[in-house]
């Protein structure tokens, strides 16, 4: 940085003049810079040979590169495989244990249920959140308008209302076997007035409670329809629903589809999974779909249970191992 560098005197210019007096000196780039440039040019060739970058086939297979001395033919894919194997080795003891355990036993084991909850989150997001929404908030809260347009409404999973039971084994059965909602349409068997009456009665049961609704003269007509037509056949005389067939509890404050009078009337008129205008309620059978391994379905059961609505077993959970169909290795 002393005089001999930037001095204006002595150095010739390129001979071009811009804007009357602007000229370019023909100073050499600094030596270190030229060295760097040459070194990079050499490195490009070396790199090209070392890594699988030559797009020609040699001996019927693509040239794989000569590799770094001592490192073999490194590729990012191989590195990923190594990392993945490392991860799998860490997970293996857990995964092996899970194979022989019931969902209830996993839930009872603090460490395992923690492990399962983590991989469950990924599984749920990939397989379940499409209908149930992230964290099981249900179709309507997840804002899945297109699904609602088609009448397909997946239930909220983090409340304590369960159509088919909320014990850990019930949840596991639902996931592994799927569910098919059903409700007969009443457009042909009930008159418009009857449908209106019974809808009001059902709504009253939810708002005021069953006994108050029964005593309420305003919905007495509906009560009669409910008792005399086929409603009790599925929902039960107490209107509390039956977990065995997945009929809804009509006395609680959670609505499977739509709790407005109009919504209730639609459910009664057109039914569920029963043709035109019917509500759609289908839970796929994940075993048949072949998408999830047995262990993965157990993980999901525990994960869903832990959303906050899982129901405890009356007796202590039985930790007896069950025999599983040989499961594909889990990829959490």
């Amino acid at each position: 940085m002393s005089d001999n560098h930037n001095s204006a005197g002595g150095v010739p210019t390129t001979g071009h003049l811009w804007d009357d007096d602007l000229a370019d000196f023909v100073n050499q780039p600094p030596k270190w810079w030229m060295l760097g440039l040459t070194a990079s040019a050499i490195w490009v060739v070396v790199y090209w040979l070392m890594y699988p970058a030559v797009p020609v086939a040699i001996n019927g297979t693509f040239f794989k590169g000569v590799g770094l001395p001592g490192s073999g033919q490194w590729t990012a894919i191989k590195e990923l495989a190594v990392d993945q194997a490392e991860l799998d080795a860490v997970r293996k003891p857990y995964e092996d244990k899970l194979k022989a355990m019931t969902p209830a036993a996993i839930l009872a084991d603090k460490e395992l249920s923690e492990y399962v909850a983590r991989s469950g989150k990924v599984l749920f997001s990939d397989n379940c959140a499409g209908c149930h929404g992230q964290n099981g908030v249900g179709t309507s809260q997840a804002g899945k308008f297109a699904m609602r347009e088609q009448g397909l409404m997946a239930p909220i999973l983090n409340d304590d209302d369960w159509l088919y039971g909320g014990k850990i084994d019930d949840i596991h059965t639902t996931i592994s076997g799927g569910r098919q909602g059903m409700m007969t349409p009443h457009k042909d068997t009930l008159s418009a007035k009857q449908i209106d009456d019974v809808a009001k009665y059902v709504k009253a049961m939810s708002v005021e409670g069953k006994s108050a609704a029964d005593a309420d003269a305003a919905v007495a007509d509906g009560k009669k329809v409910f008792a005399e037509s086929d409603c009790t056949g599925c929902h039960g005389a107490d209107a509390k629903g039956m977990a065995a067939m997945g009929s809804a509890n009509l006395t609680d404050k959670v609505w499977r589809f739509d709790g407005s009078i109009e919504g209730i009337k639609q459910s009664i008129t057109y039914g569920v999974n029963a043709g035109d205008n019917a509500r759609v309620a289908v839970m796929p059978n994940f075993t048949a779909a072949g998408k999830l391994s047995a262990v993965e379905m157990k993980k999901l059961a525990v994960y869903v249970y832990k959303f906050g609505g899982g129901q405890k077993e009356e007796a202590a959970p039985v930790a007896a191992p069950v025999v599983d169909a040989p499961a594909a290795p889990a990829v959490p």
């Binding site: 409340d159 404050k253 959303f307």
Partner: peptide
């Protein structure tokens, strides 16, 4: 506090937070 959902309505009408 859980953000999605902020709260859950339970079957007895109570509100649950996680």
């Amino acid at each position: 506090p859980e953000r999605q959902p902020l709260f859950v309505s339970m079957s007895d009408g109570s509100i649950q937070n996680k």
